[in-house]
Amino acid sequence: MLVLEDVCVVRRGTTVLSEVSAVLAGGRCTAVVGPSGAGKSTLLRLLDRLLEPTSGRVLFHGAALTTYDVLELRSRVGLVQQAPVLLGAHVLADLRVGRPGLTPDEAAALLERAGLEGLPMDRETSSLSGGEAQRLCLARALAVGPEVLLLDEPTSALDAVAAQSVERVIRSLVADGLTAVLVSHDLRQARRLADDVVVLRAGRVVESGEAASSEYLAGAS
């Protein structure tokens, strides 16, 4: 579904990604792992065109990302950031940021999909726990109907219980056919969630393939 071809990113004179080629298959969860500073988040931002490659190209359904209208592309490729970023004063307002016409029934269905069934629509977002807030961000990303969900360390700012609740939602979304690209520094989490893995080190792909047969992930105790 998403293919990177010889992608290089140079920022302020520093090479962040170098000749990165990878295939991120549709309907599967691909984990992008590697040590800090390996270029994982940079790779994720390329897929949503929040960043442009210095050279090389990214394909979506076989066509270069640049051939898509950027706003349409971003509604098809959603992003959930590392720490929850809430944009509305209350739950329904937050869900409506990307889709203003969202009805309360549609909002309730999204909340259920994100494991937040029963959360009052008028609940102030500032009163949500970290796990609830991150799942609300997931629901908000789903509201615009993406085919792909980019997840940038979605549980790193959460405690263990909240992280498990977010993982459960990701697993069910992928089971429903959504494509997920998960950036994680937590190799055990990558093993739990990912079908495929891309291992980055110093901006280069050092391993890619099925997560089950990954040597890099096997190293996680």
Partner: peptide, 13 residues
Amino acid sequence: RRQIEARLALGLP
């Protein structure tokens, strides 16, 4: 920046 990019990522101009 994070809020602005969160809105951009939702497809907002």
